[in-house]
Write a protein that binds this DNA or RNA. Structure first.
Lengths: 242, 242
DNA sequence: CGAGTACTTGAAAGATCTCAAATTAGGTGG
DNA sequence: CCACCTAATTTGAGATCTTTCAAGTACTCG
């Protein structure tokens, strides 16, 4: 269970002064443990909070009229959730913990005050949010224009990469953390078809599986299968005025 | 061809002072006409500019390895494009004008300076960006979890609503502004199937068509067909500290 | 008026879903 | 630690939706 502070996350791409760091640390003070299966945020419910995930894993999703669910985003430690409360007075989407987690809640008023006092930090948070948006557009392109097999391959690689961000010791083997139904809801497929695609990737010897664990045994080929446009994740804020 | 300034757009949901308005107006000074069919921004090309569309219509899209295209966003007057340059040094996606347009380009350094001096304006721009993100998640949910018919219905309603934002005289009848191929690239369908779905909606007397014009003749039923979760677009920044 | 682009339609192939049932894995109370 | 109970996974068969391929028609622009 990796744990990262907001300041750590921001300092990955922006040198932060002591004052900025302490302001960021103050934002992350309100920590709360969340049990697996708990709905943390319900779509359309009024709220003034956003939060950063400290440890565990969550999903952001929306429910359609007919009861079907679209998972919009997988949330890993260090990710910021609910920036939309800056624009709306209510939650734009639902959020559920898929493993035991810890979240650090942030009041939007407090966030705004920090942003007013530390504009560079504000820009850093905007940049962080932009990386989420990029992930969202990648997912849309995958769901709209790639085969089921490619979507599953891409999802496996995505999960592996994001787990690795929090735990560099992870290489080819990792625990999925999602049910096949959840993977389906993230990729626009049924659970049954997710299962078939996983089996196919296994039969083709791109991965092996044991329990909930996946091991990538042919990463080059899996990447090719994923139709993966390798987004150079390089956030660059060096241009920011002082 | 409706034309809106950034200041007008922002003042829809945030009272702006004279100083703030003049700062926003300064941002929008660098106008440039763009001919239909012109690629304004190419994915991955280095740039420090974003822009606001003043008039016309554009699409934001990404191309996959196999040449297929996913349209991520339709751009109407008043929309801000390319906020990702705040995080990356290059364009996250390609942008093409689908009708003769005028764009007001904004250097990110200038934008950052305005944001530093006018934090409330900065928050307003962030809020504007959040509304775009909400539209993106709606599109993802539609592509991932709804039928071809529903996606087409939703797209028709979306285009009508957004055209109306710039021209309140528009009611049920409007020009699509997109080819069926483009609608397909936006909804994750083939042009052929888009055509069939339009025909079906016409046969079912939810719409009529003439040339590139669509008229909605049964809006209630079209909304139902769209599986539409009516997002109350109410941006609310009243909570913002002074 | 001609050329190219966009639209339209049919028929067949292919991908994915639905339904159903069997198997396995994980979690809990005794 | 076992036995049980439920949730998750797995597999097959058939139905459905969407794509592909092909060809003809209608527009639009120069």
């Amino acid at each position: 269970m990796p744990i990262r502070s907001l300041a750590d996350r921001v300092s990955d791409f922006l040198p932060v002064t002591a004052a900025e760091r302490s302001a960021l640390d103050r934002l992350g003070e309100r920590e709360r443990p969340v049990k697996r299966g708990t709905t943390v945020v319900r779509e359309n419910e009024p709220t003034g909070d956003l939060f950063m995930l400290k440890s565990g894993m969550m999903i952001v999703y929306t429910l359609l009229d007919d009861g079907s669910r679209q998972i919009l985003r997988l949330v890993f430690p260090g990710d910021l959730v609910g920036m939309a409360v800056l624009a709306y007075g209510k939650a734009a989407h639902s959020v559920m913990a898929v493993s035991d987690s810890v979240a650090a809640f942030i009041d939007r008023t407090l966030l705004a005050e920090v942003a007013y006092q530390h504009p560079r930090v504000a820009m850093a948070l905007v940049a962080l949010d932009q990386t989420e948006r990029a992930a969202l557009t990648d997912r849309l392109a995958a769901v709209g224009r790639t085969s089921a097999r490619a979507r599953i391959a891409a999802t496996l690689l995505d999960i592996r990469n994001r787990l690795r961000r929090g735990d560099p010791s992870i290489h080819d083997s990792f625990s999925l953390g999602l049910t096949q139904e959840e993977i389906g809801d993230a990729t626009g497929l049924t659970a049954v078809h997710v299962n078939r695609m996983l089996r196919q990737l296994e039969d083709q010897e791109l991965i092996t599986r044991m329990g909930g664990r996946v091991t990538i045994i042919n990463e080059a080929e899996l990447k090719r299968a994923a139709n993966h446009v390798d987004r150079q994740e390089g956030v660059d804020l060096s241009w920011l005025p002082a």
